[in-house]
């Protein structure tokens, strides 16, 4: 079991976007691809980031991944967001932009 909660807040428009994914309800190839992105980022070993001073009009991203044994959240501004989470972030962002 793996669930992903993604949220983006802030930005010039101030419009919040959120996405909840339960991998068990996704097509198997998509679920496998997402799980790979989570694994490759070594998500559960990423250290939580210290709160930052907000940047005017900047986005703030938050990703929470939950499994049977683990739950972890990474919350950071776009400039401080960990590089190795970028592939997962880009995947989640593209899902929120599909019309």
């Amino acid at each position: 079991m793996m669930q992903i909660h993604f949220e983006r807040t802030g930005g010039f428009m101030g419009r919040n976007i959120a996405l909840d994914l339960d991998l068990s309800s996704l097509p198997p190839d998509q679920a496998a691809a997402l799980k790979l992105l989570v694994d490759e980022s070594d998500f559960f070993n990423l250290t939580e980031l210290r709160p930052e001073n907000p940047m005017p009009d900047g986005f703030v991203y938050s990703i929470t991944v939950e499994t049977e044994t683990n739950k972890h959240t990474i919350h950071a501004s776009e400039l401080k967001f960990p590089q190795r989470l970028r592939p997962l972030l880009n995947d989640l962002l593209s899902r929120t932009r599909t019309r």
Binding site: G11, M55, D57, F59
Partner: peptide, 18 residues
């Protein structure tokens, strides 16, 4: 696909939208 613009403390930054 960056729908935003911001000020990072030193400069202005602009995306191209969609």
């Amino acid at each position: 696909g960056y729908d935003n613009a911001f000020w990072n403390g030193q400069q202005m930054v602009y995306g191209d939208g969609d």
